[in-house]
Lab assay of single mutants.
Amino acid sequence: NKFNKEMRNAYWEILLLPNLNEQQKRAFIRSLYDDPSQSANLLAEAKKLNDAQA
């Protein structure tokens, strides 16, 4: 399933972002589970926040 693969990839990438705190990571991951079809958008948002907090 395409969404499962995308979601899994986004999950691990979000977990490994160094500048997000645990609460932020949990919020993004919760959103991933709520709507896996938004994986790419959520990952992009997480990366943007990660860069902003660098």
Rank of each mutant, 00 (worst) to 15 (best):
F28S: 03
F28I: 08
N50G: 05
N19H: 15
L16Y: 14
D34M: 12
R30L: 05
Y33E: 02
L42G: 02
A46P: 00
N21H: 12
A44T: 15
A54T: 12
F3N: 07
L20Q: 00
D35K: 04
K47W: 02
W12Q: 12
N4P: 09
R30D: 06
N1M: 02
N1W: 00
R8Q: 13
I14P: 00
D51S: 10
D51L: 15
P36E: 04
M7N: 02
N19V: 08
P18L: 05
N21A: 08
L42V: 13
K5H: 05
Q38W: 10
S37T: 11
L42E: 02
K47F: 09
A27G: 12
N41G: 11
N1L: 03
A52T: 09
N41W: 10
L15M: 07
L49T: 14
N41L: 10
S37P: 04
N9G: 04
L17W: 03
K48R: 06
Y11K: 14
L42S: 07
A27T: 14
P18V: 05
N41Q: 10
E45M: 12
L43I: 05
D35V: 10
L20A: 01
L16N: 14
A46W: 00
I14H: 00
A46L: 03
R30M: 03
L43G: 03
K48M: 12
D35P: 01
E22T: 11
Q53L: 14
N4F: 06
S37V: 05
S39R: 10
A27I: 09
D51E: 15
L17F: 13
L16F: 13
L49K: 13
A44Y: 10
N41A: 05
D35Y: 08
K2S: 14
S37I: 11
L20V: 08
L16R: 13
E6M: 02
A54N: 08
N9D: 12
Y11E: 15
L42R: 13
Q53P: 07
A10Y: 02
P18H: 07
F3Y: 07
M7I: 08
N41V: 06
K2I: 12
A46V: 04
Y33N: 05
A27S: 14
K5L: 01
Q23M: 10
K25R: 07
L43D: 00
A10F: 04
L42M: 11
E13M: 11
A54P: 09
I14R: 00
A46Q: 00
N9R: 15
E22D: 14
F3A: 04
K48D: 08
F28D: 00
K48Y: 10
Y33F: 12
D35E: 08
L20W: 00
Q24K: 02
Q24A: 06
W12P: 01
L15H: 14
